[in-house]
Write a protein that binds this DNA or RNA. Sequence first.
RNA 1: GUGCCCAUAGCUCAGCUGGAUAGAGCGUCGGACUACGAAUCCGAAGGCCAGAGGUUCGAAUCCUCUUGGGCACGCCA
Length: 567
Amino acid sequence: MIEDLRRQLREICRVRLSLSEAELPPFSVEHPARAEHGDLATNLAMALARPLRRAPRELAGLLQAELRSLPGVERCEVAGPGFINLYYSKDHWRQVLPRVLETGPDFGRTRADRPERVQIEFVSANPTGPLHFGHGRGAVVGDVLARLLQFTGHTVEREFYVNDAGAQVRNLALSVVFRLRELRGLAGEFPADGYRGAYVIDLARRLPAALTKFLPGEPGEPDLRAIMDFCVEQNLADIQRDLAAFGVGMDRYASEREVLSSGRMQEVFAELERQGALEDREGARWFSAERFGDEKPRVLVKSDGSHTYFATDLAYHLDKLRRGFERLIDVWGADHHGYVPRMKAGLKAFGHPPEKLEVVLVQMVSLLRGGQPVVMSKRAGEIVTLREVIEEVGADAARFFFLLRSPDGQMEFDLELAKKRSLENPVFYVQYGHARLCSILARAAERGLPVPDPGSVRQADLGCLDHPLEIELLKVMARFPEAVLSAAQGRAPHLVVYYLQELVGRFHHYYTATARESPILSGDPARLTARLLWVQALRQVLQNGLALLGVSAPERMEQLPEEEGPA
RNA sequence: GUGCCCAUAGCUCAGCUGGAUAGAGCGUCGGACUACGAAUCCGAAGGCCAGAGGUUCGAAUCCUCUUGGGCACGCCA
């Protein structure tokens, strides 16, 4: 709608004011917060006032005459300092119904003006242990961003970068060896920077016999490599299982080892060398990142000869671009924010515009239980895993909660709250709305009332929908595609959540407001038909929104227990 | 010390590419079930948008400074 009007306004400016595209000042078109300001409002007249050296209200009057004759426009007013407020006819809004019901699951899908091949890298947790609950936020933000970008016309691939070559995996293997020896009653010393979590002991127990042959001696390098492989494989399998349980899918798992063995590293060094952007100093090899917008040089090869994480990650990012992606989106924990200029500098050195890489920083999550912080000791390896959270509150609630806040704000995640079947828990509010809509349709069928097929919407007399709240809901439905678009463009999945809360809220309001004098399942056949189509459309929009969030849309909510059992 | 993020109702947060009288949920108080699901709804109270300057027709939104929080500043990832 907004885009339609924007287009129409540009056209009017071109024809009536002989303004070229380039001469058009930026102007707003929005859904005003207040109903008295119409269905859509624009500040175009005010924006034009300065360049045209004419009074805003005078220009507004001029535009008003044109806007009045636009299809669907019922009223057009000039208000305040020069706002133009447009009111559309009820019939115009009723046309949302065929759009929703005929496109079904595709309602809200848009074609991007400029579709891009996007690669979105997220989670990318080290394969050194299970996913932490905090990974959940990045996982769901990345997942929903991918869904949103796809739904708005882009080609998206989701990728998980596995750091399977670094020192961390070696540390884990050493920790596993220590636990193994411990299990066998052999002496040993806990490795420096070792992993303390209980899962390390599990890994030691699960080591295949072939990998423990070195006992009671110490593992040689080949033994250790084999144990590293085993650990990576096991941990990755666990991670994949947890992501699947969380509704997060990946198209590809990229491996750091592959980057190292691909020859890409050599190419990276050769190119940097050619540019004189490499410097050997203090036994290490440095990239002159400060020449490309970063603060200072960064180490690529450590004095022990191994690559830094940055070195392989840069090669990996260059490889993504080589694969033809026009845009790279990385979802990182905010504690990595200092890393952004470094990576952009790296891309710049290779002639890529740094804007191609977009980093969505996801802020920290603090875990609470009934308002109290959950105590965790990272040192002792006591962490709350994503799996535990999913098992306790369910994937739907966990996803919804992570999506409730803008990614760039810190948030609290209260386990008790996420489990509550109550008003405090917004997941159930939205899901209940869907269940309620389903329930109405089920009840209609039960009573033998004719439930119209969505495909018959063009035959129905939609004029029967004349309750102000019914029209209001039509307007909200019509806004769905815009809500999706702004969520996608703003990399802000929470906007979809807010939209759904509004949609459901207005429906609940309508439901109770009409329950007494005019329930949905009442009235003459034409009216009933129109309302049942309206209900189906609402349900469809709700389903589409929930699908974007990866949250289920249950047909009925499980019954609450009448009372809590004895404690 | 330097850089990034944040500061909006008692609490948790939207709104931030400048627009009209700043919103929602929870919590508090008061109401609505012989009814399509009360897991819902209605109403009330609650604000110097951290503070101070600036930019302009117009600022929660943009700029500067201050204060108060978080994070990052390693040859860790």
